[in-house]
Design a protein around this nucleic acid. Structure first.
Lengths: 239, 239
DNA sequence: TCAAAAGTGTTTTACGTACACCCATGC
DNA sequence: GCATGGGTGTACGTAAAACACTTTTGA
């Protein structure tokens, strides 16, 4: 590596794709920019490293708390990818690393830091009109949503969208909200309940949906779904 | 984002996991460090951005050419992930974005730039004794190899390891080298030849392996393998 | 004529899909 | 009772794994 000449240093930031389900639809957490450029446009929460010594992952968690007031239990941030196009920020060279987190329904965010407002917005609305988002954040959000969709196929991630105790129908509603279509309820039920250590029965039941009460489960330790639950498009688009 | 206070700027680099198959084994391209720290240790090719305006992807391709003299046709670099632990480089804060490329057997690399030597080394040898590699490069290499293994299951990537014209046996040898075990030759043959637009028959045959001559193919346009070719461990590890 | 590798056919078994059907509750 | 959603059983089709078998070459 170069040592005897000038090493270009560029600003390093993190951005966060925080997804949840509200009212049966996939929502993303966005702030409203208080400064130019792209003032007033929705943007992903995020920001620069606080110090030269701050870990990237730590910066992501810190920015989430600062800008939205959210400090969820058991937050798991997954690195999405790094966006380094030279002019993605018109002010100065910024290379940003995006993180993805999936959370159950949370309280309204409280804006802080550089955010004028913070709110949950339907992901589809943000993505349909791409140029309404600041910088390249629509692209980052799209990548995050696509990553989440894929995770539902192969991992137990869907449970992360659910409250601590949930029914199989709650879990299925996650698939419907994220994928846009629901798997067969009966086969879905068999499939998820047969995965070892995925759904832990609590013994309790709920009746809030009408009809026969559904069993309540907690998240188990399983992380991978094998066999996977493939969405239609995975098969048909390739067949 | 912060604008009115000092934005920490850190050094930004790229590192490259370049994989190929030589003598039926998976090899990675490594250089030998000419400077402290970790002098003389094998390291991944890579380095700092050349200017504040250089695109990340462009920096990766440039470093490959500079340090190893390799400028392969149709090089496709895939972003692997970004490594940002505060002390991964003892000299200064460096956040590095790793890229992955898969190439057919190439000529010996020619060291240049900051590299004293450049060579192909068996991936297993580099990974078995992790502390022989500089910085956190063993971890990065391991992530790259694992990504490649996964790609073989779901994509047509294996053909990227092969010469422009190759037989089904050549392709199967890729799976054996990367996975460590071979799929059944007969089922493998049926599977890959039935994927639409994956293998384009040239009409020619080769006899270089002894036995019945094999048909020669070229890469087709297909990128995804559906249904996937799953390695044993994918099923058994989860079952 | 034998060994070796390429390539095909056939059988078995697993699993996803579709859907009939029963269960447990509220109204 | 009847509607509603929860949950189970079962038949059918597709496809993967296993492996016998044929083909085509060199020695």
């Amino acid at each position: 590596m170069a040592e005897k000449w000038v090493i270009p240093k560029v600003a390093t930031s993190v951005d966060l794709v925080i997804l949840t389900i509200r009212e049966q639809r996939l929502h993303a957490l966005v702030i409203e920019r208080a400064e130019e450029p792209d003032r007033d446009k929705p943007a992903l929460p995020g920001g620069f490293l606080a110090t030269e010594e701050e870990d990237l992952d730590a910066a992501a968690a810190r920015e989430l708390a600062e800008e939205t007031g959210l400090r969820p239990q058991g937050l798991h941030l997954e690195q999405l990818r790094t966006y380094g196009a030279p002019n993605r920020d018109p002010r100065l060279r910024v290379i940003t690393t995006a993180y993805l987190a999936i959370l159950p329904d949370l309280p309204e965010p409280v804006p802080g830091g550089d955010a004028r407002a913070a709110s949950w917005q339907p992901a589809n609305r943000l993505l349909d009109k791409r140029n309404t988002m600041a910088f390249d954040h629509a692209r980052i959000l799209a990548d995050g949503v696509e990553r989440a969709r894929g995770h539902l196929e192969h991992t137990t991630l869907a449970a992360a969208f659910c409250a601590p105790e949930f029914t199989v129908a709650d879990l299925r509603a996650v698939y419907e909200a994220v994928w846009g279509h629901a798997p067969d309820p009966r086969n879905f039920h068999r499939k998820v309940t047969s995965v070892d250590d995925f759904l832990l029965p609590t013994g309790r039941r709920t009746t809030r949906h009408g009809g026969r009460p559904a069993a309540l489960y907690r998240r188990g330790g399983a992380t991978t779904l094998y066999p996977p639950i493939l969405r239609e498009s995975s098969a048909t688009a390739r067949a």
